[in-house]
Amino acid sequence: MFNRILVAINGTAQCDKVLQLAMKVAQSGSRIHVVCVISAEYCAPDVASQDASPAARSEQLRAEDIIANARYLLTTQSIENITTVIEGVPEQAIAAHARDLDCDLIVMGHHHLSTFERVTGNSVAYSVLESSPCPILIEVG
């Protein structure tokens, strides 16, 4: 039923739960696409841009580490996977990437917002839900 699953992670403690949930719904022949989104101002995909901005280098290395850990976990479970660091506003980048890959499902986490956070805007999960091209499975942390 779900052949192309997009998993959006960001390095929080909830990442393992999100990956475990995706593995539960993956079937034989499913491919899991794992993404970690970096804001455009911190994206440094090449050495020259990483050298120009220590903050961007740190963020890029952190995202690559998050992705490498996910790849390792999925590979040790013999689950076909593709891992990518993508750039942009998280809610927009996740929905666009799912659309580009023609995904059947998005799996991501959600944490409860404080009163202030609810007043100032929606969560990433809620915003993805509003623009998603496919169903979303949310791990509530």
Rank of each mutant, 00 (worst) to 15 (best):
residue 4 R to K: 12
residue 5 I to L: 09
residue 9 I to R: 07
residue 12 T to K: 03
residue 14 Q to K: 09
residue 14 Q to P: 00
residue 14 Q to R: 09
residue 15 C to R: 11
residue 16 D to M: 02
residue 17 K to V: 05
residue 18 V to H: 02
residue 18 V to W: 00
residue 19 L to C: 06
residue 21 L to Q: 14
residue 23 M to V: 12
residue 24 K to L: 06
residue 25 V to L: 11
residue 25 V to P: 01
residue 26 A to P: 12
residue 29 G to I: 03
residue 31 R to E: 11
residue 36 C to F: 01
residue 37 V to A: 04
residue 37 V to W: 00
residue 39 S to D: 15
residue 41 E to F: 04
residue 42 Y to C: 09
residue 42 Y to D: 06
residue 45 P to I: 12
residue 46 D to R: 04
residue 47 V to G: 06
residue 53 S to N: 15
residue 57 R to N: 13
residue 58 S to Q: 15
residue 60 Q to W: 07
residue 61 L to Q: 15
residue 61 L to C: 11
residue 64 E to A: 10
residue 66 I to S: 04
residue 67 I to T: 12
residue 68 A to V: 09
residue 69 N to R: 10
residue 69 N to Y: 02
residue 70 A to D: 03
residue 71 R to K: 15
residue 71 R to D: 14
residue 77 Q to I: 06
residue 78 S to G: 08
residue 80 E to R: 14
residue 80 E to P: 14
residue 80 E to G: 13
residue 81 N to L: 04
residue 82 I to P: 03
residue 83 T to N: 09
residue 84 T to V: 07
residue 85 V to A: 12
residue 89 V to P: 01
residue 89 V to T: 14
residue 92 Q to M: 08
residue 92 Q to H: 11
residue 93 A to W: 01
residue 93 A to S: 03
residue 94 I to G: 00
residue 95 A to G: 14
residue 97 H to A: 08
residue 100 D to I: 01
residue 100 D to A: 02
residue 102 D to A: 15
residue 104 D to Q: 05
residue 104 D to S: 05
residue 106 I to K: 01
residue 108 M to K: 07
residue 109 G to N: 08
residue 111 H to D: 05
residue 111 H to A: 08
residue 112 H to Y: 06
residue 114 S to W: 08
residue 115 T to P: 01
residue 117 E to L: 07
residue 120 T to N: 01
residue 121 G to W: 07
residue 123 S to M: 08
residue 126 Y to S: 09
residue 127 S to N: 03
residue 127 S to L: 03
residue 129 L to P: 04
residue 131 S to M: 08
residue 131 S to N: 11
residue 132 S to D: 09
residue 134 C to W: 02
residue 135 P to V: 05
residue 135 P to W: 00
residue 138 I to G: 02
